[in-house]
């Protein structure tokens, strides 16, 4: 394995890891305030991807001039983030809130149910004649997401190391969003309230924090991150299908737990670790072993760090 290949795989790992991290943040934040593993989150990501595809088609983005395209992309990112936030808040209101006092695993089943509903909706969405880029009526087949970002090698096509503007857009925009999120959680009143609720909902309520509002805000942020991630990932891998939520969701959940569930920096670190492990396992061991390698490493990490990479060791309750 040569040096350029090492960097190449590292780049691929980081780029994918960023997207896992974006979804994982949604898992992790929701878990922080509600202790709910929101299994529908990956499928929300999928629906947002379809939404983005439909919007881009309606805007005719593949034929737009570069300047207009940039404007359109920003608009689509905003719209998808809103879409994700709205759907997630709606779900919280309709499905999860009535289960606030239910046993811990009841909302988990609701989330699994929602995940099925979303996948079915994705199938229907895929069946719509979208008049986008040739259109399509094959419900289940993956759809091509327009390849809008420039995909040439910044080091020249003959170079053995390949870095494209596309990679940079994914990495830089994800980092920007994460930084914004960090600032929000660390420095705003809402962020403080979120941390308080995550730490102890009862005490937070006693201190006059509107816990329900904070929970809704958390769902909104998580959904917006998924919506943002959906556009970015769509532009990166150029595919939408009703199944893309499955593995992304699985990896994001894994990333959230690996980093220390409820821990925001942990989710990012977890996502990066998974992305990088995947890439190097493909390179060194073979793609058919990817998941075995990934989960074996994960089990070993958790055996030695039972609360995740960055998770604080939970004190025994007395």
């Amino acid at each position: 394995m040569t040096v350029d290949l090492i960097f190449q795989q590292l780049l691929i790992g980081i780029t994918n890891g960023m997207v896992f991290a974006l979804i994982a943040l949604g898992y992790s934040m929701v878990y922080g305030v509600l202790e709910l593993i929101n299994f529908a989150h990956g499928d929300l990501f999928m629906l947002a991807s379809f939404f983005a595809l439909t919007l881009l088609g309606a805007l005719g983005a593949s034929n737009a001039s570069p300047g207009l395209l940039a404007v359109e992309l920003v608009a689509v990112v905003g719209a998808c983030a809103l879409f994700g936030a709205a759907v997630n808040v709606g779900l919280e209101r309709v499905v999860y809130r009535p289960l606030r006092n239910a046993p811990k695993l009841a909302p988990l089943v609701s989330a699994i149910g929602l995940s099925f509903i979303f996948q079915n909706l994705g199938l229907f969405w895929g069946a719509l004649p979208m008049d986008v880029f040739g259109g399509g009526t094959k419900a289940a087949a993956p759809k091509a997401f327009p390849d809008l970002l420039p995909n040439y090698n910044l080091f020249g096509e003959s170079s053995s190391f390949r870095l494209t503007p596309k990679d940079l857009v994914v990495i830089v925009s994800s980092l920007a969003v994460m930084a914004a999120l960090y600032a929000l959680v660390k420095h705003t009143k809402l962020g403080k309230a979120m941390r308080a609720v995550a730490h102890d909902p009862r005490a937070a309520r006693l201190m006059g924090i509107d816990v329900e509002r904070v929970i809704a805000a958390t769902f909104a942020i998580g959904g917006a991150l998924a919506g943002f991630g959906a556009v970015i990932y769509g532009l990166y891998i150029n595919t939408v299908s009703y199944q893309i939520g499955y593995q992304n969701g699985l990896y994001a959940f894994t990333a959230a737990v690996l980093g220390g569930i409820g821990n925001i920096a942990g989710a990012v670190v977890g996502g990066l670790v998974i992305g990088i492990v995947r890439a190097f396992s493909d390179q060194l061991i073979g793609a058919q072993w990817q998941q075995a390698v990934l989960f074996t490493i994960l089990i070993v990490i958790l055996v030695f760090r039972p609360s995740g990479l960055l998770g604080a060791h939970a004190p025994e309750k007395v």
């Binding site: 790992g13 390949r162 199944q243 890439a279 190097f280 058919q288 990817q290």
Partner: peptide, 20 residues
């Protein structure tokens, strides 16, 4: 010769290896 996971989202690391 290798197998891949049909449920994976992308295969860039595999392709980077093959490219070499």
């Amino acid at each position: 010769r290798e197998g891949m996971d049909p449920k994976a989202q992308e295969y860039r690391s595999l392709m980077a290896k093959i490219r070499k």
